[in-house]
Amino acid sequence: MTRFLARRSVHSAFALVGLIVAVFFLARLTGDPTNLFLPLDASLETRKEFAHKHGFDRPAIEQFWSFVKDMSHGDLGYSLRKQRPAMELVLEAYPTTLKLAGATMVIAIALAIVIGALAAYRPGGVFDRISGIASLAGASAPDFWVAITGILIFSVSLRWLPTSGVGGFPYWIMPITVLALRPFGLLVQVVRSSMLSALASAYVKTARAKGVSERTVIFVHALRNACLSIVTVAGDLTVGLINGAVIVETVFGWPGVGKLMIDSVIQRDFPIVQASIMLTATAIFLLNIAIDLIYVALDPRIRHQ
């Protein structure tokens, strides 16, 4: 196990270094940020002076070495636009994204397992058909439309929920619901098909023949075997969310890393782009290692390989 972890960490470190180099140079290929920082009416002289002062007129390779040197001291750059250290801004935004992603995935997975398992229990029945339609609708509904419609119905017309913002439990309901729809829809389909295969297998028939309770048959025998594919898909969906839920963060005013990253790309705020990609990439590598460990826990065969 230790060797496995060490090997995965080394692979991840190499990939991270490659990503940092690629992001640094690709970001610079988008152009000099001077024009975006200065007002449109700034003179040519002012533009030149600004670019020179902040080193934007230096060759990209020179800028890269400065970046590496600063990074070796734990300094990931300073956002001129926000006037603060880039990593500080990213670390401030990241917990919001993690909380949103975590809550969303817990709810989506829990509901999907319950509904997917029930749908698989009586395939072709009324519940299966209704859950099939609902999950497909959830998986295909555009986030933006659902978010705005949700605000108009639940905040403006019914006045049940706040329109947006960060706060207590009511503030979480709409963002999580909107964000959970797609993972929920996809996971219901995955759970249903995995459970159908599992429930039709010989070991389930044997378990029932031995008089094992139905709850144990489903949640111990069938679900555990169906879990591998659920973990794979849920892991992939979680990776998407910890990259930032840009639309939900934008509409509901959640100060997460997705919105910060997109705004920084548009504004050529390179230090924030670099810091946020570095942090999200690290989080994704850690998540992938966690998924591998879950595989091992779920399937003893993997452990013995």
Partner: peptide, 30 residues
């Protein structure tokens, strides 16, 4: 019998969650 009982319990879970969610917010409190 067991199958039906379990189905009905599981079915209630999303309803409990929904009721809890909506009960947290009422008109004007925001």
């Amino acid at each position: 019998h067991e199958k039906a009982r379990m189905s009905s319990r599981l079915l209630y879970l999303p309803l409990y969650a929904g009721a809890l969610a909506l009960s947290m917010g009422f008109g004007g409190m925001f």
